[in-house]
Computed example of a mutant assay.
Amino acid sequence: MTVDGLGPHVLITPNLAGLLPQLRQRYPHCRFTAVADDEPIREEYLDAEVVLRSAMNEDLFDALLSKCHQLRWVQITAAGFDWVGGEAWHRRLDEGLIYTRSPNSYNVPIAEYVIGAVLLHARAFPELAAAQQRHEWIRVMGQDVIGSTMLVFGTGAIGREVAWRAEALGATVIGVNRTGAPAEGFTRVVPFAEHLALLPEADSVVLAMPLTSENQYFFDAAHFAAMKDSAVLVNVGRGALIVEDALVDAMRGGVIGGAVLDVFEQEPLPADSRLWDLPRTVLTPHTSFRGSGNLQRLYADFCANFDRYLAGEQLIGTKRQPDLGY
């Protein structure tokens, strides 16, 4: 991993350039280079061993994969792997390239978003904001979060961050995962096979699970029908977890109380999408992960793994279930 006493060359995407001073100070024997999206591959990139990837043009990334023959490890600044792919990518993986995710960087802002979404619905802010636009003085009965039940699909790092925050507000938090294995912060956890029976109990339903071949389009009309007519659905997982036709019918038909959606099967969401105008629905443009502390959390996640890489140790953040893609 070193040449002539020097550490590995690390490429980072331009939006992470703010980390360069810290990285160079912490690892003075390593090279760190920000890769520009708007120009051809430079000669200086070709000896890179590591890429820390955030926003990057796919063609540029494919070129790096094809031309950086010493590349051994890619860390992506995301919680999930499903958006990564391509012929060059899979070829390099077959050749032994290691890739990892950033397991902690976005958990805090996403969890805060979820709690904000639940409170937004419980305190009827969308209705009140609409009344303000009409210059209308209305009084709406809010719903207590204390004493409510939250059902969280996904008991990983994001789900756990959601759980303790909801519990602090006095909610009972039930987690759903593949096996029903207990997880910190949850009142109880049930296996995925039993989740449908729990929907009638939930005042809020949170999708914080990775997209896999098993759960694609699992949340369908039967799920909406099983929910309370006052409940809110919050999706911070992936858009393809939900059957769009079922969502549209549920919101237009008043089947559930509200929905807050941050992820969509097609992003950016087309201007003519039916989702824009759904009643009692708040849409945000995949921004739940954005937070003022992200850069430092990304730094901490990368350094934790880079220290392992330099020491020849196993990296963290690899796929837990490779056969399912997460």
Rank of each mutant, 00 (worst) to 15 (best):
G257C: 07
G180F: 03
L261W: 00
F302M: 07
L295P: 13
V84H: 15
M1N: 13
K67V: 05
L93Y: 12
G7S: 10
A34S: 15
E95M: 12
L169T: 05
L199M: 02
Q143E: 13
E44Q: 14
P210D: 10
L278K: 09
W89E: 04
F192T: 03
R101F: 09
A231K: 04
D82M: 02
T187P: 05
E161S: 05
W137G: 11
N57Y: 02
V3D: 15
T318F: 13
L211P: 06
L310F: 06
A55H: 15
L97P: 12
F153G: 00
Y217N: 14
F218C: 07
V51K: 14
A222L: 06
Y326H: 11
F186T: 03
T281W: 04
G291L: 02
S230H: 03
V140W: 14
V84C: 13
D220I: 01
V236W: 02
F153D: 00
E136Q: 04
A208R: 02
C68A: 13
V255N: 11
F61D: 07
I138A: 06
P21N: 01
I98F: 09
L275D: 03
S230V: 00
G253D: 08
W89S: 11
V234M: 02
E58A: 13
Q133R: 15
R72A: 02
E214F: 06
W83L: 08
G317T: 09
R92I: 04
F186D: 01
V260A: 06
G170E: 09
V140S: 11
I158W: 00
V243M: 08
V236F: 00
E39P: 10
L23R: 12
R290H: 08
V260K: 07
H223Q: 14
V176R: 02
P14Y: 05
E87I: 11
W83I: 11
P210Y: 00
D229I: 03
V190Y: 01
L23T: 06
A222R: 06
T212W: 06
P8R: 04
A197N: 13
L119K: 08
R92F: 11
E39Q: 15
L199W: 01
D62M: 10
A79I: 05
T149F: 01
T287L: 07
R42L: 12
P200N: 03
A222T: 09
H195L: 07
L60S: 15
V51Y: 14
R252S: 09
M150W: 14
A311V: 00
D229G: 01
R280F: 13
D62L: 06
V3I: 10
L295Y: 15
V84G: 04
V248K: 11
V176S: 00
F218L: 06
R297G: 01
G291F: 00
G237N: 02
A163R: 12
I316M: 13
D144E: 14
A55N: 15
F264D: 02
G237E: 01
P268A: 01
F289M: 06
T172P: 06
A271C: 00
T33C: 01
S105N: 04
D249L: 11
L128K: 13
G312I: 03
A17G: 10
R134I: 05
A34V: 11
A181F: 01
G86W: 08
A300R: 14
Y309H: 03
D323N: 10
A17F: 07
